[in-house]
Each structure stands twice: as C-alpha cells, then as structure tokens.
Design a protein around this nucleic acid. Structure first.
Length: 449
RNA sequence: UCCUGAGUAGCUCAGCUGGUUAGAGCAUCUGACUGUUAAUCAGAGGGUCGGGGGUUCAAGUCCCUCCUCAGGAGCCA
C-alpha cells in the first residue's frame, strides 16, 4: 500500500481514540501555562488541541513545544483521548513533537483585521477556519453541479477561453494579441460554442472561468469568475426553467447534507436554505412591472449627471438592483423572471411567438439579496431571424458565420443558461463579499496575490 | 466612468476650536503560572501621522495637489 494512505487527518480522529498517532500540520494558536502548553493544531481538515505536559515529555520536546509560534509547521505524536474541556471534544496528549519550520511574525493574528489587510494577505487568509469552511462549501457546490449534470445525461464539453469575437457584442472584454491572426479576447461566455456542442451531443454543459473587463466595483462582481452553462437541444424555455430550478434545488440540498460542519462554522441560518425546494416562484417581466407600479418603485436614471426617479417604471427598461430587490422582497425562495423586452436582451434570444415585443429569456434571482444567480434563454433557431438580429446589433456577420451554420444544418429549438458559481457560493455561505468565495479573486484594483 | 468615504505603531482604532516629548488595546520579546479556549499578571521595544507643496511663531489637525484603498451606481453571473 502507498505510504500516504496511512497519513491520518484531524477529521478522522474519532476513529482512533485511545491510540497513539501522528499528525502533520500547522500551529493555529498556542497558550502557555507554565509546565503545561496548549497547542491548537490545524491540518486543513480541522483543528485539534494538543497538550504538552512537562512531566510527560523530555526537556528537549518541552522546549521544542515552547518555541512554536502561530503557523509554524509541526509534526506531533501523541495519544488521542476524548476530552470535554477541549474544543471539538478530542485532545492529543503529546508524547513527541518535531518542529518542521518556525514561523516568525505571522501577520494575521487571532484579533480583528480590516478587509483590505486580509485580501492583501489572501494567500495566508485562506488558512483561517472561516475561509477554510467557505472553500469547502465551494468545492461541494462544484461537485453538486458536476454530479447533477453527469447524472442527468449531460456531457461535459469545454468551450475555448480565447475567442476571436465578443460573444454578445456588449460587454467589455480583455484583449490580447494572437500571433499573426490579430486580436483575441478572453471569453465572457462559452454559450455559443455550447450551442454547437448541444447540436452534436444533445445535452451538454460547459464549465470554466469567464472574464469580464467591466470596471465593476461591487461586492457581487469579479473580473474572473466561474460559470456553468448547460445547453440542450429540443428544450424550450419551460424545459430550461425546470432544469434551472432542479439544478439549484440539488446544489442547495447537497450542501445542506454534506457541509453541516462548514455551515455551522459560518453561522449560516440553515432553516432558510432548507426551504429551497421546488416549486420556486415564476413571474413574467410584465407581471413584475405591474408589481413595481403597485408599489411605486421607480426607474433610477442619470440625466445630465443627476439621478432622477421615473414613475411609473416604464415598460421596456431592464431591471436594476433596486427593482430586483423590491420584487424579491415578497419571496423566500428563488424567483425566475421571464420574457423580457427584446431591446433589453442579447441578440441570440428567440422572440416569443405569442408576443414579438419580448424574448424567451429568463433570470433566476436568489432570495436574501443573493442577486442574479442564473441568466438564460431559448435561442433563436431560425436562420433569417438570427441574421436580422445580428445586423440590427451591428455585429460582424463573418464572425458569426459558423454560428449561423447551426441554423442551416438541422436547426432545432434549443435552450440553455449560465449559473454563476461564486454568486451561488456567496448565497449559500452567507459571505458578505464575493471575493471571499473564490481562492484568489480578480477585481478591478487587485490582481495580487 | 460617475458619486461617496477612508489612509496615524505589525493589526484595529482614538487624537476636540492648530499648542509641550503623538496615545490605547491587541500582536511581538523577557519573566511567572498544571486546564488554557481572543488566558491572566509584571516589564520592554516599536511611529517619515499616505507622498509633495502651502498658510502659520507653531500642522496629525487648516488649504492645494497627487497617490492608494473601500462600496454604491451602471454592466452583468
């Protein structure tokens, strides 16, 4: 058997009570008490209190224990015992101790710190128990996503990250030189490629990082974030919305089941999350506008640098944060808003055959101010209609020739959506800022570490 | 890009209408302690008050300018 398989971790300690074992980790904190030393040891899977008593070990070991500082790396041998006085219920009665490296002046102390300081030390901040818990939930969210799709007949089909053109033609993109072929851009969505993949394999999902060069400065935006985008042949908008609800329900329930400890560390009120089961809420854009009218929610717009309120909210304008939060106040579960005005949405979305002023688009808004978790639509599958929309939007037809091909050779109704991984993790963990839910956030004024 | 706010010790902050040698808590170092959970007690070290310029007998404090950062709008997942 490989030796590494015998390495014991703190989360498995309950299986070896009474045995003498070895743990490899780092010093989370220490307190001395004369002939008695308490060492809180962490190893990434948990934290356990180790006790060094002068009467139980030789002088050298005791001195080695005294020399340990916060975040020093150490290998500790000792006997596992159940101990009510210790946090977590278990304790290591130390018999041997080997300092691997002594850390000097670890910057993040057990006391309070400001946001700016912590994010500057992101590479070390990840060691804190709160960040550790968030990263574990993130891993669980991603596993839930993959399990859900893999278990429902979807195939993973990666989309390229370097693309020759702007996918939706709207967002600002990061630009780079691509050999002798001119400019290339970092992808803001894998959707167009996912459509081609769906017409090849039926049900696919693309999962990877996405880039937006918008100069956003908010607690829910990143310039680099992860998105999963399923795309399904022969799915209409209703199928699309059903799938979106199934996915979100699955993710939340999976996290509740597998991340009990993590959510407790984060002090997340899970009674709220337990309610996240289908059916969710659904309203059309027009119904949402009616609601805004009834509640006197205005459109906030800037005219000549002055912010003005426009009442009643004009039909045709896209919703901003103010409108979305007002609409969500009545809901304790996610809500899908569907059938948006054509002008407010992307060129590739299919018009509603029953009302040409709207497109078959949908956004899922999360409760508790989670914001937009999902954006999706049924795609325009008619060659002429799509061509018309490309031209109306002043997009280069040549660049979209391959995309138009999909409407020429066996076109079918098809739909898909994109779910923001970080937005979802932020909601489930209750993190106050999106930068806490990705290991190394990329934001407008921060690219280090 | 626009609006608002903030930069004082390693960290979190106080510092009033300008006025002796700029403060606290924590962290660090030294010492005491067999049950600590952010231990406690005694002592020590630690500052270009974001940079530059100006007003003044005197500037952390007032004025100008630049820099850095934060979060709100817009954009969106």
């Amino acid at each position: 058997m490989s030796r590494y398989k015998s390495y014991l971790t703190i989360e498995d300690l309950h299986k070896v009570v009474g045995e003498e074992i070895t743990l490899r980790g780092w010093v989370f904190n220490t307190t001395g008490k004369g002939k008695l030393q308490f060492i809180l040891l962490r190893d990434g899977t948990g934290v356990v209190q180790c006790v060094v008593f002068k009467g139980n070990v030789n002088e050298e070991t005791f001195e080695a224990g005294k020399s340990l500082t916060q975040e020093s790396s150490v290998i500790i041998t000792g006997k596992v015992k159940a101990e009510e006085r210790a946090p977590g219920g278990f304790e290591i009665d130390v018999t041997g101790l080997q300092a691997v490296q002594i850390a000097k002046d670890y910057p993040i102390t057990p006391k309070e710190h400001g946001d700016a300081f912590l994010i500057e030390h992101r590479h070390l901040w990840l060691r804190s128990s709160r960040q550790n818990a968030i990263m574990r939930v993130r891993a669980a969210v991603i596993k839930a996503i993959r399990d859900f799709f893999d278990g429902n007949g979807f195939k993973l089909m990666d989309s390229p990250l370097l693309t020759p053109n702007a996918c939706e033609g709207t967002s600002t993109l990061f630009e780079t030189e691509y050999f002798d072929l001119g400019k290339a851009y970092l992808s803001q969505s894998g959707q167009l490629y996912a459509e081609a993949s769906a017409l090849a394999l039926g049900k696919v999902y693309t999962f990877g990082p996405t880039f937006r060069a918008e100069r956003s400065k908010t607690r829910k935006h990143l310039t680099e974030f992860w998105m999963v985008e399923p795309e399904m042949a022969y799915f209409d908008l209703d199928d699309d919305m059903d799938l979106a609800e199934d996915l979100v329900e699955y993710i939340v329930q999976f996290c509740l089941k597998t991340c009990t400890k993590e959510l407790a560390i984060l002090e997340r009120d899970t009674t709220f999350l337990e309610k996240i089961k289908r059916p969710f809420y659904r309203i059309s854009y027009s119904e949402a506008v009616d609601y805004l009218h009834k509640n006197n929610i205005p459109l906030k717009k800037k005219v000549d640098g002055q912010e003005v309120d426009i009442l009643p909210f004009p039909w045709g304008e896209d919703f901003g944060t103010v409108q979305e939060e007002a609409i969500m106040e009545q809901f304790d579960k996610p809500c899908i808003i569907h059938r948006y005005p054509t002008e407010a949405k992307a060129f590739y979305m299919k018009r509603d055959p029953e009302n040409s002023k709207v497109v078959l688009a949908m956004d899922m808004i999360g409760p508790e101010k989670a914001g937009e978790l999902i954006g999706g639509s049924q795609r325009e599958d008619d060659y002429d209609a799509l061509m018309k929309r490309i031209k109306e939007n002043d997009l280069p037809v040549e660049a979209f020739q391959w995309y138009l091909d999909l409407r020429k050779y066996g076109s079918v109704p098809h739909s898909g959506f994109g779910l923001g991984v970080e937005r979802t993790v932020k909601w489930i963990t209750g993190a106050s800022h999106i930068r806490e839910v990705i290991p190394f956030p990329r934001m407008i004024y921060r690219i280090v570490p």
